[in-house]
Design a protein around this nucleic acid. Structure first.
Lengths: 147, 147
DNA sequence: CTTGATGCAAAGGATTTGCACAAAT
DNA sequence: ATTTGTGCAAATCCTTTGCATCAAG
């Protein structure tokens, strides 16, 4: 078995989950398809392999819980892509144009949006992105009261 | 009447649309509420003013078409916020770490995502953002083939 | 044989649409 | 009068869930 699958299996089993055929098929799908896919697209590829759309959704939730994959949203569409084995870096900062204070933006939502931006742009421009740096400027909490 | 509403009215009428009471109420809502809202939230605020949820959705579509408001998506949730009268700036670039080529990222999806990031961060950090600059790094189309 | 996983179909929530009626020009 | 807009309810799309059954340890 693919060593990456062995790794997945171990991770799952530590918490009492099993690596079933359906989970193997979905993980193999992600391992062999770069990019981001909707649940329906994954289902279409795998349905001849004894899998239902409800299971696709449930396995996606599980894989997200284990950080094997991540959700990227483009517009209001939800896609999923492999996260484990990937080492993309997100830097986020805010700088106040009045007092010059710098705030580190490190929250999960911004990170998720950054990954969405990366996924979209990689597909759109046919490039490979491994870092994103986001700098926002404006007025901080305190300074915005003065204007 | 509020001069901003007069402006909205003119824009609409050029293309044969009318500024109805429901449209006025929704525009007044956006003009007086900074931030982003879901259709249901707008509906809850305005339902005593003779408006149905279907109309809220239809007017949102219309206002987007006219660029009066814009959609921001946070996770898979769709919110709407005033766009006209706002002058936020988005800069997007990609730079290749191998050949140093710089590509301007100016597409609509990235801009929309940037606005989502701004909206979320403004609310989250209680700050006011007027610029965002996004720099992605990695391998361009050509260079990625070499690795 | 006990726990976890799946399939199916039903339920849910968000959004869209067809149609008859109402409002604006 | 003619065109545009709205409300209502039904339809649609995406996603989740309850339950009976199946599979794995």
């Amino acid at each position: 078995m693919d060593e990456r699958l062995v790794h997945i299996k171990e991770k799952l089993e530590i918490e009492g989950y099993r690596l079933t055929n359906q989970r193997i098929e979905i993980m193999k799908f992600f391992l062999s398809h770069k990019g981001h896919y909707k649940p329906e697209q994954i289902y279409q590829q795998l349905k001849r392999k004894e899998i239902s759309i409800a299971t696709v959704y449930r396995i996606i939730d599980l894989f997200i819980k284990f950080d094997f994959i991540q959700e990227v949203t483009i517009g209001a569409d939800r896609y999923y892509e492999l996260k484990i084995f990937s080492k993309k870096i997100v830097h986020g900062h805010f700088s106040c144009t009045n007092c010059n204070k710098i705030i580190d933006i490190d929250d999960k939502t911004v990170k998720t949006m950054a990954f969405s931006m990366i996924s979209h742009t990689e597909r759109d421009q046919e490039i490979a992105i491994d870092q994103i740096s986001i700098v926002m400027q404006g007025l901080c909490d305190e300074c915005k009261r003065l204007f």
